[in-house]
Design a protein around this nucleic acid. Structure first.
Lengths: 179, 179
DNA sequence: TTGTCCATGTAACCAGTTACATGATTAC
DNA sequence: GTAATCATGTAACTGGTTACATGGACAA
């Protein structure tokens, strides 16, 4: 897995953002993505600024509020991002505690397992609803004549999320039948 | 995400293993799981031994080879594992570099993206074949009369893997159509 | 002779989480 | 008066990756 560096550049390639904005976009649910903490975002932005991948576009100061530092991507930052995007990717392992718990289901009673599956199923149902709503919101705003519309890329990724949540629900149903 | 501690106990609950065996089982592909390095396994086993979750069952010494330390789970280790398995789980984020690259697809040419998708698709196809073979191998060995057969739990998890790889392939095909 | 397998382990480093700190403002 | 939001940042800790070290056996 690569550093969060590319995740930051990915968002900045679309629009100028502050560290705080980046945190919101990542920890909110624009796609089934990363989480980041402030301790990663702010130092990384400073580093990238020093390396010229990003530059301070301006500071928004609303008197009573802390100053907001808006960063924009530089041409060289964009190059680095494009370069990375073109590098071949590898398969990532799924790391999900619930899979490990399911692997241990033989240790517990079927009723207990059933309760566990139902609990996780509910949470994934909620995510599915969020992703579906997001797709419904974005789809009419895509410009189909533009092969470089970022929204189309966003939808592809959220679509992955929808498919993933559906798979999770199907799998849960399958477990419930066999338990 | 929880510590590898539970991953180690999960494997030891089924059979006594050495640190090396654990590494092989995890980094090989019994399920779509964790990877671990020796630097995590050996110290963690020592810690767990000190806490009485695990104990040294014996040492296998084949003259010319390094001594192999076999650990087995203790009743208290089993308790801890069962307790953890019964704790409610949360939804885990999918963290896959390729999703981030797909999110950047608007930055590159459709042809370049097509090549990227085809490359990752191939790798996921291979994984699917592995998982399918694993299921075919395990299924006839399950004891259906035993509701606590660990093999059934293993199959459930590998089945998740199969479904996941199918989803990935479908999604790739969908991308290839729209690019 | 170069490399891989066996089996243990250590060292150095990078990534990620949780918690804390500031300080004004708004909402309950 | 308590908590949340905005926006920056630091500190301490845990988790994870990569590389290295030993040393005999065996295969290309």
């Amino acid at each position: 897995m690569s550093s969060i560096r590319y995740a930051l550049l990915t968002l900045l390639a679309r629009e100028p953002l502050s560290g705080y904005d980046i945190k919101l976009q990542m920890n909110g649910r624009l796609g089934p993505f990363w989480k980041v903490g402030s301790n990663q975002v702010y130092p990384e932005l400073s580093k990238m600024e020093a390396e010229g991948l990003v530059k301070l576009q301006g500071v928004e100061q609303l008197t009573y509020r802390p100053a907001k530092k808006l960063y924009e991507i530089t041409p060289s930052g964009r190059d680095v991002l494009v370069q990375w995007t073109l590098e071949p990717a590898g398969v990532e392992n799924v790391r999900d505690d619930f899979l490990l718990k399911a692997f241990n289901s033989w240790l517990i009673e079927p009723d207990q397992m059933k309760a566990q599956v139902e609990a996780i199923r509910k949470q994934h149902e909620e995510r599915l609803a969020e992703y579906t709503a997001k797709i419904a919101e974005l789809t009419p705003r895509v410009d189909p004549s533009n092969p470089h519309d970022p929204l189309a890329s966003t939808i592809s990724v959220v679509d992955f999320g929808v498919r993933y949540e559906r798979l999770y629900l199907d799998w849960c149903d399958h477990l419930l039948k066999n338990v």
